[in-house]
Every structure is written in C-alpha cells, then in structure tokens.
Design a protein around this nucleic acid. Sequence first.
DNA 1: ACAGTGACCTTGT
DNA 2: GACAAGGCCACTG
Length: 120
Amino acid sequence: MKTAAPSPKTERNFFQDVHEVVRLIPTGRVSTYGAIAHYLGARHGARMVGYALIAAAPALGLENVPAQRVVNRNGLLTGRHHFATPTAMQEALEAEGVRVENDQVVEFKKLFWDPATELE
DNA sequence: ACAGTGACCTTGT
DNA sequence: GACAAGGCCACTG
C-alpha cells in the first residue's frame, strides 16, 4: 500500500520540491508545512506537504529527508506517530540539539527556518 | 466514480 | 482572544 507506485498523473514534482526544501533545512533547525507550501508558490494545501513527507518517508528509502525537522505551525510534532517509533522524531530532534518538550519544540520560534525568508 | 480521511493553515464570527 | 468552519490536493476503501 502507500502509493509505492508513482502515479504519472499525479505530479510528484511537488513531492520532489518538498524533499529539496526539507533537505535544505540546516541541522538544529525546524521548518513548517505552511512555510514550505508557501515557498513552493502558494497554499498547495499544507496538508499535501505533510503527505509529501509521508511519500518521502525513510520507509520509502528517502532517509535523506529529515522529516523530523518539519513540524506544524504550533511547533508540535504532529507526525511523530508516523515515524518508526513514537519517540523517533523527538529523539532525532534532541540528537540534533533541538530541545523538545511534551512533543513540542522548545524555542521553536527561534529555531524556525523559513525557506522563503532564509533562502528567499 | 463517490465518499471519507489526512504530518495543515487561513479566515470569519 | 477563543471557537468554528472552510479550503487545499491527494490517497484509500
């Protein structure tokens, strides 16, 4: 299951772009779905960004995509449940120096990395 | 083909 | 300021 078959009709270009941006996120930094979606052009529907991360999930072989650095607007690790383990996301973030408390990134506002602003 | 769900965000009341 | 609803696009059943 899980879209293992790339559908040509579905422009996975969007996913590819998401992968690029997520990969460009510096270590110890975090970004948001809305920022990425906005940087890609417009509101693709921030939800699609999340889906793109699922499509980019390490389980598919894209371990180069640090989805752990991508959180929601609240800085909450909404997708931790989608990781191999419920703590994998938090563990990974803490391993990079990002303090996570109660599934929430501490000083998220400071660690926030906006492609449209940083990369411009 | 239809309906429901989903790692969300923005706007309106 | 808080709560509610809508919107975006894609995937699954």
